[in-house]
């Protein structure tokens, strides 16, 4: 893996690189080069399998982290390509031309995080939520508890406990 990374570094600007395990590396690249980079990995380096495309909301930094986890079935190792994009009006280039199934991930990201992938087929169609009008629910600034209480008629009298303290109290009342 090591020499692969070195090889990649000669032609791409790798912003960050972590070798987590012998068969898993995290590489951070810039938003602009990301698709080119992924395409290189797919076509040249044999990372033929898109394991997952997901996102992390770094609300404090004002960024979304996109995670493209790629697998090389020959070498039996994975590369996680991380891309940081702006949280405001988040958009990213689509990779559905590399993997047809990426459109589904991108549809999900659009619905759950509000990250747009212009040109990805059917990206605006509802994914699992039907008729959702609020903030995208996976954004950390969306208050799911408040939303639930406002929407779903909470049953009065329902108590809630912190499981740790509650169980401790139940099981070991004397401690």
């Amino acid at each position: 893996m090591k020499e692969l990374i070195d090889r990649l570094k000669t032609s791409y600007t790798v912003e960050d690189y972590i070798q987590q395990r012998s068969d898993l590396a995290h590489i951070t690249v810039s938003k602009e080069t990301a698709v080119d980079f992924i395409s290189h990995l797919q076509r040249v380096e044999g990372y033929k399998h898109l394991v997952i495309l997901t996102a992390v909301d770094w609300i404090e930094d004002g960024k979304f982290q996109l995670t493209y986890l790629l697998n090389n079935p020959e070498m039996k190792n994975d590369i996680n390509v991380k891309v940081f994009i702006e949280r405001e009006n988040a958009t990213m280039e689509s990779i559905h031309h590399l993997w047809e199934q990426a459109r589904t991930y991108q549809r999900e990201l659009k619905e759950m995080f509000g990250i747009d992938f212009p040109g990805s087929p059917g990206v605006d169609k509802p994914f699992i939520l039907e008729g959702w009008h609020d903030l995208p629910p996976y954004r950390r600034d969306f208050d799911t508890k408040k939303y639930s209480e406002e929407t779903y008629f909470p049953r009065p009298g329902r108590e809630k406990n912190d499981p740790a303290t509650y169980m401790k109290q139940k099981l070991y009342p004397n401690e």
Binding site: L129, P137, T144, K145, Y147, S148, Y152, P154, K160
Partner: peptide
């Protein structure tokens, strides 16, 4: 179905079926 159970604060599951 009674009060939402462990999904009581989920954005996407109902709390009370009888409504």
């Amino acid at each position: 179905t009674i009060n939402g159970g462990m999904y009581w604060d989920s954005y996407n599951t109902i709390n009370r079926l009888d409504h």
